[in-house]
Simulated scan of single mutants.
Amino acid sequence: MSTNTELVQNKQKVKWIAFDLRAYTMIAALVLIWILFTFLSGGSFIEPRNLSNLFNQMSVTSVLAVGMVLIIVAGHIDLSVGSLVGLTGGVAAILNSTYDWNAIVVFAVTIAFGALVGLWQGWWVAYRAVPAFIVTLGGMLIFRGVLLGISDSRTISGLSDGFKTVGTGYVPQEWGIVVGVLAVVVFTLLLVLKRVSRKKFGFDIEPMVLSLLKIVLVSIIVFTFVLAMNDYKGIPIPIFVVIFLAIIFTFIAKNTVYGRQIYAIGGNPEAARLSGINIKRRTLMLFVLGNTLAAIAGILLTARVGSATVNAGTMYELDAIAAAVIGGTSLLGGAGTISGAIIGALVMASLDNGMSLMSVETFWQYIVKGGILILAVWMDIYSRQRKNKG
């Protein structure tokens, strides 16, 4: 009897360890990329100034990837977010520069505009049964055309300092430390609540040693990040926005009924429908959330560049999809995490930044990122096939 109990316990330990190995594979790959570029650049890659630029570069893709994860998890795709980034950035720039609107009001109106666009696209997908691929492909062309029209195909500059601060400002160093402490406390609290909840409902609980190891690892990562950023100018405001949105949407995905229903829809739409989930309403809200995030990304990009251009956001939809997939989101639906997408965006930005630092030709950058994307999709398909055979 005791032997059987020990076998069960050992199997559970192996399960948790295997889960963590899969979850942190991308982190290991990221560390290897950083080590490689640090060595090749003579240490320039990990200098605080370059890391600050790196995190700034990844911010727009990260915000888009956060929304893209949920859309892909539900079995859809959104090809319009890049053009929507350009359009919302153009709208924000016109309101702030041409009409002299206050930056805060401009942000609110632009985000609301993004939500309305999402409502329009989501309506076609959810209530008119037009495939998301077609709706958002059409949206990609429409939004780019509208941007060309309202901007008269010209760059819109003259943004206020308050507007540009969102894309170029930094969180004060003292506040950065406070944010780091709060991040560790929140992570620890969520981990404890998860353990309590799983124990309450009779589910397996990961070993305490593993939970403590996670807390230590996250603490090291958080404070290393904060100290590195404080060694330059502080945490960039765009990456602070990314962290805030990632926390909010991770909570939505993991701790709300809506989030669980999205994963259920992506995993088995027919079973989700039979269980009483209102698929149309959930799908509509998906695109509202995704396009709202695209509007936020448009504001960040415009503020960082200091102007709105007609080419802003071009190809960003592919970067967002690649970040989500590289981070473990399955194109078949039903699987994916916000944290994985952030890591995927960081991998993409690290490759861009590192190869640019090494003066690698642009065409090689596209080739490398494309190859990594194909490899990531293959790994997802291969792991699913092994799981089904098992």
Rank of each mutant, 00 (worst) to 15 (best):
S219E: 01
L148G: 15
S160E: 10
I235M: 09
L332V: 10
I342Y: 04
V125W: 02
I279D: 04
A376C: 07
L245Y: 08
G259E: 12
G344S: 12
N4K: 13
G118P: 08
I372T: 09
L70A: 11
G114N: 08
I134T: 11
L54Y: 07
R49E: 15
L51N: 03
V242T: 09
A228N: 14
V109M: 09
M229Q: 15
V66S: 03
I343C: 11
G327C: 10
E206W: 03
I35V: 14
I205W: 00
I142M: 15
F37L: 08
T155Y: 08
R282W: 02
S197H: 12
L190F: 14
L51W: 05
K164M: 15
V257F: 00
N230Y: 05
K389M: 12
K15Q: 11
L227S: 09
F249V: 03
I156D: 03
V105Q: 11
G298T: 11
F287T: 08
S153E: 13
I235R: 04
I321K: 07
I243Q: 04
A312L: 15
S160H: 06
V360W: 10
V185W: 01
T302F: 08
F240T: 14
V196F: 10
V60Y: 06
A297S: 10
I205F: 01
G333F: 07
M355V: 01
K280V: 00
F133K: 07
V8F: 10
L227T: 10
A28I: 15
I220K: 00
L293Y: 03
S356Y: 05
G139N: 07
A65S: 15
Y127W: 12
V8P: 00
R128P: 01
W124H: 11
L148Y: 13
M348E: 10
A271G: 15
L293G: 13
G90N: 06
S359A: 13
A335H: 08
F19H: 09
K254A: 11
K199E: 14
M379P: 00
D231H: 11
S197D: 12
L7T: 10
D204I: 02
T38E: 12
L137P: 05
I111C: 02
L331C: 06
M1G: 13
N50G: 08
A29P: 00
K369H: 10
S197R: 13
D380M: 01
A272Y: 09
V242Y: 11
G167K: 11
Y170S: 04
V8G: 01
G149S: 12
Q12E: 13
K164N: 12
G180H: 03
T329E: 09
G290P: 02
E361T: 06
A308C: 06
A312Y: 01
I177M: 13
Y24M: 09
T188I: 09
A323Q: 07
E6P: 00
L147T: 14
T88G: 02
A129T: 05
F133T: 05
K199W: 02
M140C: 06
A23N: 14
G333K: 09
Y258V: 04
L346K: 02
V106Q: 10
R22L: 11
A253P: 01
W124A: 14
V360A: 14
F363C: 01
S59G: 04
K254Q: 13
N230R: 04
M68F: 03
L210C: 00
Y366S: 13
G158M: 08
